[in-house]
Amino acid sequence: MATIGTLSRQVATPLKAERHGDRSIASIAFLIALWVALAFAVVCLAVLLIDSFVKGLPRLDSNLLTRYSSQVIPESAGARAAILGSMWVIVTTAVLAIPLGVSAAIYLEEFANPRRWYNRLIEVNLQNLAAVPAIVYGMLTAGFALAVGLRRGIVLAAGIALALLILPVIIITTREALRAVPAEIRDGSLALGATPLQTVWRQTLPSAIPGIATGTILALSRALGEAAPLLLLGGLVFINYDPDGLFSGFTTLPIQIFDWTGRPEDAFKEVASATIIVLLVLLLAMNALAIIIRNRYQKRW
């Protein structure tokens, strides 16, 4: 099916290129190459999704949501601890990362003097930090936990690692959102006698919230899908109680999926597929929320 779609596109593309007067063989070949690359990505994704759905659908039952993982009866294993663990970790991450990230962005965008060397240094480092592999943050947090004598495999440690991971993304998107607020708004506020702080708090920040919320939710959904840094931090794979606080042990959906897919029993592979569906639904819901917020509250100046 996908191939037919791609072929018809390939026929259409050269025509389009022709309209723009560019009909060199090189450009047509390039366009075809682009379509093939795109089709490859889409087909791989479709195969993965279909595979997960076919394998996981029979296990999309109430056991999945209400029971813990089970070695004794793998057929009844559930992702309860992982779902709750993921929620605890993501909320902790949000609570740690959002105030820090938004404050840092406000400072950099509204108050920092870009000519000062230390502000430029911060700026360059932010860009670099956004590109650091996730596992490095896991190692950093593991080292931090060791230094302060904290147990590693707890919700708080996971929250710190993921907050560090998404902090640069939150700062960068918040800055973009603040930059999109027209200078006239600030000027008007200042002209009416508001202090710079009042201007930020009452005018700039509220206007930028839709953009900030969108960026933050997308960053959090990335954190939700991370397994590597949490595995390194000692995220658990078997846990038969609900996490109940910041110092509680935890597992998360990606960790649980990773563990189950590596097991010999077919029942674990099925429950892993079902859990992948749960994770996908959660991710799609978060992304949809981000889009809704953007569309509903976006201001046009």
Binding site: G153, L231, G234, G235, L236, V237, F238, I239, N240, G249
Partner: peptide, 8 residues
């Protein structure tokens, strides 16, 4: 009694 198991 809660038992938790990691895989380090």
């Amino acid at each position: 009694v809660n038992v938790s198991v990691g895989t380090a």
